[in-house]
Computed example of a mutant assay.
Amino acid sequence: MAQRSGHRAFVALGDSLTEGVGDPVGGGWRGWAALLATGLTAGGAAGPPVRFTNLAVSGAQSRDVLERQLPAALECRPDLASVIVGVNDTLRHSFDIQAVAARLDQVYASLTARGAVLLTACLPDPGRMLGLPPALARPLARRQRAVNAVVHALSERYGALHLHVCGGEWITDRAMWSADRLHPGERGHRQLALRFHALLAERGLASGPAPSPEPESPGPTVPARLWWLATAGTGWVARRCTDLLPQLLALAADELGHRARGTSARLDLRASAAVSAALAALSPVEHPGPV
């Protein structure tokens, strides 16, 4: 990988994770990408901070990133771009791994074709994070594994710097997570920023100081978590249940039926075949690889 002394423009694309939900600052959200940007400089360690633009929007799906965020990102002429999306796709009745793969392929190709270093990540499944019953959680987990498999493959295809955050101790460490149990808290966002900074530094692509792992504000208390679940959390679940719940119940019934017959492996094989078909359907491209 070629060495660069610093970045000029960093653009972040994605959903609520990159928007910064869970890391409130000054009446808004900050998040891992903004924290990472403070550790990146233009023109070397003594240079000015990079121009940072956060285009991520809560609730965004892969279609939103392709159709709305990508054009704005290209206008910023980034030499560093992060793309983390897919969880919201898994929470919709219209989930289609082939469509997700095709959209991400277009986004990655467009950014790397302009010379941007690409940052990507795989993510934990939402059912596990929310503590859903197993019959409901397993179908969501299967969908998230499919998205992660696509992201892994495309990250390799386009020479992205890929961060594995779909497992590990941080998933079960409550100190890392906000009251909603789905988004990182400040400590979790700092951990993501620190790990991305390490990936960049290993390749000579981060000349500024690493973000501090220690939060500036205390984490949510138990009463705060319970209050969120009783108020905002109820609305969050209700909005998604309107779209997903009927299909999720059908998926859960199918899950239970396969378990009763001892044929659960067929569901995993079906999901793996869908991922393989989605990747096979992509047009072969020549890409420059790691920048």
Rank of each mutant, 00 (worst) to 15 (best):
A206I: 07
G208C: 04
E186H: 10
G27A: 04
L163A: 07
Q247N: 02
A45C: 02
L136P: 00
A149S: 15
L267F: 05
R261E: 08
A81T: 05
E286L: 14
H183L: 10
L245N: 06
V100R: 01
G14P: 03
P126D: 03
P24R: 14
W32S: 11
T172C: 05
E19L: 15
A280P: 01
E169Q: 10
A37D: 10
H162E: 10
R190V: 02
L55D: 10
C166D: 14
R203Y: 02
A72T: 04
A135Q: 04
T112P: 02
L17Q: 04
A46H: 11
H197A: 09
R195S: 13
A201L: 07
W177H: 05
D125R: 04
E75R: 15
Q3K: 12
T231A: 13
L267G: 07
G127E: 04
R68P: 00
L91S: 03
L80Y: 08
A2G: 06
L200C: 06
R195T: 07
L226V: 13
T263A: 13
W228D: 02
A265G: 13
G168F: 11
L199E: 10
A135S: 15
L40F: 06
L80G: 04
C241V: 06
G127N: 04
R225T: 08
I97T: 14
R68K: 13
Y108T: 01
E169Y: 01
V50M: 05
L140G: 08
R261I: 01
P288N: 03
A12E: 09
Q191K: 09
W236N: 03
L182M: 12
L248E: 09
E169L: 10
R145D: 14
P49R: 11
V150K: 10
D243M: 00
H287K: 02
R157P: 07
V237L: 14
Q61I: 13
G26K: 03
A102D: 13
D173C: 03
F196W: 13
R174N: 01
V151F: 04
S217K: 12
T53I: 09
L267E: 10
A101Q: 05
S178A: 15
L123N: 05
A277R: 15
